[in-house]
């Protein structure tokens, strides 16, 4: 079974966002990590490989630095990796272009299953549905369970107020919710082996694409949320403070 995992390099969740002098997000002092939901996708791919054999290939679109994230995927157990890196793409935010590039790169790998995270925590990217659409295959998002039976897969996906059990023919794209599994750590041995595994870098031209796929939507400015100020601390014994809070929420904030 060939399994492709789409992974994205993102800012660490604890990163503080700073807008630089050029008006753009400053990434100079930021720790970069694998998108957390993509870790769940990686784990699921490795579990499938352990069960059915085959190959796990990690694919990413990103800057040259995104190699680090692919190395992490290799250290977790991916067999090889492909990075699409091209100065024409703003890989973090241009989901349309990223999806086109990923779909092209993926189609050449002829996967049975494509896994990725349900969302990228940086630009809120939802790449899975777009890639599935370009490839013309089904997509089940926010999955919390995945079982492969022959040429079909049965996935449980989270919806508002419950879940759905969905059967799809393969190949198909699945995007992972956090509760899908518990991602493994890479191991020291995995890290040592990762550097010997293949990591191929491709440009848009290598994929037969050009810059016309980029920039369908453009970011015209960044801002930071208006800083909230700490309000007032309500003093007193618990019962007294609670009573005062309830009064304020009714009289002043007019909520309850």
């Amino acid at each position: 079974m060939n399994i492709v995992v789409l992974v994205k390099q993102v800012f660490d969740t604890e990163a503080k966002i700073v807008i630089g002098a050029d008006g753009k997000i400053d990434d100079s002092n930021v720790t970069l990590i694998m998108n957390p939901y993509d870790e769940n996708a990686m784990e699921e791919a490795l579990l499938l490989k352990e069960k059915f054999g085959g190959e796990v290939i990690a694919v990413s679109v990103g800057a040259a630095k995104a190699q680090e994230t692919l190395r992490t995927a290799l250290a977790m157990g991916a067999d090889r990796a492909v990075l699409v890196s091209d100065s024409a793409i703003q890989p973090a935010s241009d989901d349309f272009a990223a999806a086109q590039a990923l779909a092209k790169a993926v189609s050449e790998l002829k996967p049975d299953i494509i896994l990725t995270g349900r969302v990228a925590i940086d630009y809120g990217s939802k790449i899975a549905g777009r890639v599935a659409e370009i490839l013309g295959i089904p997509h089940v998002n926010t999955i919390t369970k995945l079982e492969v039976e022959g040429d079909n897969a049965v996935a449980t996906r989270e919806i508002d107020g419950g879940s759905e059990v969905i059967e799809v023919p393969l190949p198909a794209v699945f995007s992972a919710q956090k509760s899908l599994n518990n991602p493994r750590y890479p191991t020291v041995a995995g890290i040592m082996k990762a550097k010997k595994k293949e990591l191929k870098t491709l440009t848009l031209a290598d994929l037969g694409l050009d810059a016309t796929v980029t920039g369908k939507m453009q970011i015209v400015g960044y801002s930071l949320p208006a800083g909230r100020k700490g309000g007032r601390v309500i003093p007193g014994e618990p019962a007294q403070a609670a009573a005062e809070l309830a009064r304020l929420l009714r009289a002043e904030a007019k909520i309850i």
């Binding site: 940086d122 809120g124 939507m217 930071l224 949320p225």
Partner: peptide, 21 residues
């Protein structure tokens, strides 16, 4: 329209436009 969307889960906002399509 100009759209404002949170990025980094609301730690910042980006204004985006679709210039042609």
């Amino acid at each position: 329209v100009t759209l404002t969307r949170p990025i980094y889960a609301g730690k910042a906002f980006a204004k985006v436009v679709s210039s042609g399509a």
